[in-house]
Write a protein that binds this DNA or RNA. Sequence first.
DNA 1: GTCCATCGTACATAGTGTGTC
DNA 2: GGACACACTATGTACGATGGA
Lengths: 339, 339
Amino acid sequence: MKRPTIIDIAREVGVSKAAVSYALNGRAGVSAQTRDRILDVAAAMGWRANSAARALSNDRAASVGIVLTRSPEDLRTEPFFMQMVTGLEQTLSVHGFSLQLAWTADTATELATYRRWWAERRVDGVLATDLRVSDPRPALLRELGTPAVFFGTAEPMAGIPVLRVDENDVVSSAIEHLTGLGHRRIGHVQGPPELRHTVRREEVLNRIVRESPGLAVSHERGEYTEEGGVRATRRLLATPNPPTAIIYDNDVMAVAAVVHAVELGIRIPEELSVLAWDDSMLCRVVRPALSAFAHDIVNDAATAARMLLELVETGVADDAELTRRRLVPRTSTAAAPVG
Amino acid sequence: MKRPTIIDIAREVGVSKAAVSYALNGRAGVSAQTRDRILDVAAAMGWRANSAARALSNDRAASVGIVLTRSPEDLRTEPFFMQMVTGLEQTLSVHGFSLQLAWTADTATELATYRRWWAERRVDGVLATDLRVSDPRPALLRELGTPAVFFGTAEPMAGIPVLRVDENDVVSSAIEHLTGLGHRRIGHVQGPPELRHTVRREEVLNRIVRESPGLAVSHERGEYTEEGGVRATRRLLATPNPPTAIIYDNDVMAVAAVVHAVELGIRIPEELSVLAWDDSMLCRVVRPALSAFAHDIVNDAATAARMLLELVETGVADDAELTRRRLVPRTSTAAAPVG
DNA sequence: GTCCATCGTACATAGTGTGTC
DNA sequence: GGACACACTATGTACGATGGA
């Protein structure tokens, strides 16, 4: 099948290709009748702008990119990115934008990907997630001038629109939930320390502890993995005065820890309450079922897409807030054991 | 940042842009010294071919696409597509190809996406999965002339290279596993009936039953969802002569069914054995842990990417076989109850 | 007259500023 | 002044032509 060009349309209608271009782009310069004839013929021929030609001509790829930098194992169990992609696509496709996806094993390759995409003009902008403590990406993206949106940061970022997440909010309700049940010694199993929101949650928790006499929180690293979650849990429970409740920075660690604890004969929630960030089917099927903080990633991703499109179009975009996480209480949290 | 073009390089070196193009593409037509100087200058300037210009010039987008047509809920629990994407990317990025991703809610939109991609020349080829019983995609892709590879079909396909999956193989070992444990009445909870491999598995199972006196299999539809899996299980167990073992077409249904059965007081595996297609963390954490058939999607996706690249380059590609599924025995399958 | 290095230019397609009737 | 055409832009590729050895 031969794909029609505006020249084919021009020949068919008997006008110049400039007229066709004006008509197809809804610009002045053609009479209403000519415009209609052109549009009819274009529709009949099934014309679609060649994306390469259009990109070359107006320096727009009509495409945005996202780079996933997580281990294949993480991606396998984390539903996060799939939901992200669905949310992005819902908005992007409406605006005729495509989504480019890359997967890289490390930050160096991620940076190289941004450079390559930009140098090749493959994308008009990128969406970045998982801000790190010492993150080279904002500087690179600013240097390149690549329009970018950061997903899920605590603070605004100079020159880069962000979707802010309010960790105060969730952490407070987590602590309220647990202290309401009588817990005073709380464990916290954290994600990778290089992630900014791992640090952020620790800070927020520590602040709350300082403001709440009689409350104690101990942090342990869990790295988001099953083994990490189990190891951190063992360390917490081996302390002289072990916590009666543990908060996990993601569902994978929490679920693995619950399975492990049950095998060790630890009764949940009678002896130990467990609460997870990120809800998923895992939380529902494990026994006891996990109380968890769900969030609406699909919706947030759609917001991110709108911000990115606006940034690409106008050069600026306002920050936005992620939708709040919502506590889904199940059977893994209950009153603290007495004593 | 101004991005350099071959004209900038030509000016800098003092040659024509044709010479630069030849040098950068490793073609004959320039002397070794000139080539080296050009390459040096290009590297110093950080030149990268503008993908739009290159695509326009040689009618190659250096990009392939994949359309996901599953409900957002499915995508959330199914790790399949993330693994797919990682596997594809590993191979594509080495060859300088990008991956375009689209998510659509139904087949009509999926077809429209192929049409649009092709009309806009956004991709050089596409990868398709989940062949349906009456599938309009092969015909459309043939009509458009879009190079395409189908992932996971039982039969070869006229004009379209496929990654074949041998259902005989898995189904046989599933049945061997269960009959070896003494099971004679086996239930089968199926995926959506419109998927070709749902039908295929039913056919293969029925053939094996015909060849095995004393063996009986009953099929029920489960639609790949938690609720579907639970409902189908209830229907199977409500029959006068219920199965002693059930095979599920995916892990989500199997896990949901196990959770439900345990709640009803059905002892697994003493009273009922459960076996799942597709392994995942869900199978590992549910209790009892699920025996499942794992497969190496990342590796298979890499194969698919290689086939697609070859198809795009040469116009032909040989069919290949998916890697075999491997039984991961856990505690959900055991000897059939006596009587 | 052959061969190689190199250049000029047409081409892929869409968009747009300027000129003409 | 409205409706249109022409010529040029964007960048990289590739064919045919030209010059020198």
